[in-house]
């Protein structure tokens, strides 16, 4: 895509997103969750797509951010907005710290062992939260009431999550275009080679997970307040739903690309909402079928398929040096 067209598309999408609450007020919350889904897919793809470490446990950072924020809001006694700000910061800090600690151990696991360990991590967090009385155990936590008119809360969090999505997208775009992106791609393609070239793989891997955890932590804090109620297994540490959806959305759109997760999340979220509306009761059966179909028939994803089909469009073409260079052979 030429740069100007890409920029126009981006601006158009942002304008559309800003106008959406007035265009389709009835779907405000659903679209808010679309932003959440896009953040899920984008942050999963940092490790899963760009670095080759398939994590089923990223939802832990989401949940930790959510609980961290809710505890601050409950216990500091501040007004709503200061408490929310502090809570989001604390939630993010907690998530990043956790990622740094866990990462130093878990990121030394390779291949499917990492996937399974993170799967275990996700479930352990959910079970642990359901047992811990300080955060409400199995009955969960309720976040403070939003101080405003009915409907204001939805608008506030709509724009907050939209802003988060945009920031996530641009931060990742910036990171992927620099050394960081190159290094984690190198780790994905051949970690032994990357080590043999002297790359500080552990530093890069841990940083990548921390970036992922940061955005998930902030998002978790916001989502806890949007929903208003935190259930340990179904909202915060929802491994079998959110945790797996992240993976699926990124794969569906094309993992290892910037736009793939955005595209995948959009398609998946709309499909999911349609299931919910038209297949009541059977929506989760349909979900299982969708997972199978994506994995079996679309392992490359939409953008991955397009890149396979038209490599030149993605810049992979033979290109001679314009000036007559001195060939060494």
């Amino acid at each position: 895509m030429p740069p100007t067209a890409s920029r126009l598309l981006l601006i158009g999408l942002v304008v559309l997103a800003l106008a959406a609450p007035w265009l389709a007020p009835a779907y405000r919350t659903q679209i808010s969750f679309l932003w959440v889904m896009i953040i899920f897919a984008l942050t999963w793809d940092i490790l899963g797509g760009q670095m080759g470490y398939n994590s089923f446990g990223n939802v832990v950072f989401f949940g930790v951010g959510m609980y961290g924020c809710a505890v601050i809001q409950r216990d500091t006694g501040l007004d709503y907005y200061p408490a929310l700000c502090l809570g989001m910061t604390a939630g993010a800090a907690l998530a990043v710290t956790l990622a740094a600690v866990l990462g130093s151990g878990l990121l030394g696991l390779r291949g499917h062992y990492f996937a399974i360990a993170t799967l275990g991590l996700g479930f352990a967090a959910g079970e642990f939260a359901s047992g811990w009385d300080f955060i409400g155990a199995g009955s969960g936590m309720v976040t403070p009431l939003y101080p405003g008119e009915v409907g204001d809360r939805e608008s506030f969090f709509y724009f907050l999550l939209l802003a988060l999505t945009v920031v996530t997208f641009f931060v990742l775009r910036r990171l992927y275009s620099g050394r960081f992106g190159l290094a984690i791609n190198a780790i994905r393609d051949d970690e032994d080679k990357a080590e043999a070239m002297g790359i500080r793989t552990t530093l890069y891997k841990t940083t990548a997970w921390c970036v992922s955890a940061f955005f998930l932590g902030v998002t978790g804090a916001a989502v806890g307040n949007l929903i208003g109620f935190i259930d340990p297994r179904d909202v915060a540490f929802a491994g079998p739903t959110f945790g797996v959806w992240m993976v699926l959305m990124a794969i569906l759109g094309g993992k290892g690309t910037l736009w793939g997760p955005v595209l995948g999340a959009t398609v998946f979220h709309i499909t999911q909402e349609l299931f919910w509306t038209y297949l009541l009761g059977w929506q989760r059966v349909a979900l299982g079928l969708v997972i199978l179909a994506i994995v079996l028939f679309f392992p490359l994803g939409i953008l991955g398929w397009a890149r396979e089909r038209w490599p030149e469009r993605f810049g992979h073409a033979v290109e001679e040096r314009p000036a007559t260079g001195e060939g060494a052979s």
């Binding site: 996937a115 797996v244 299982g288 997972i291 199978l292």
Partner: peptide, 15 residues
């Protein structure tokens, strides 16, 4: 292996 993990996970939800 990751594909097989995901596919059988899908089966697990389905069943």
């Amino acid at each position: 292996l990751f594909i097989s993990i995901l596919a059988t996970f899908g089966l697990s939800i389905l069943l």
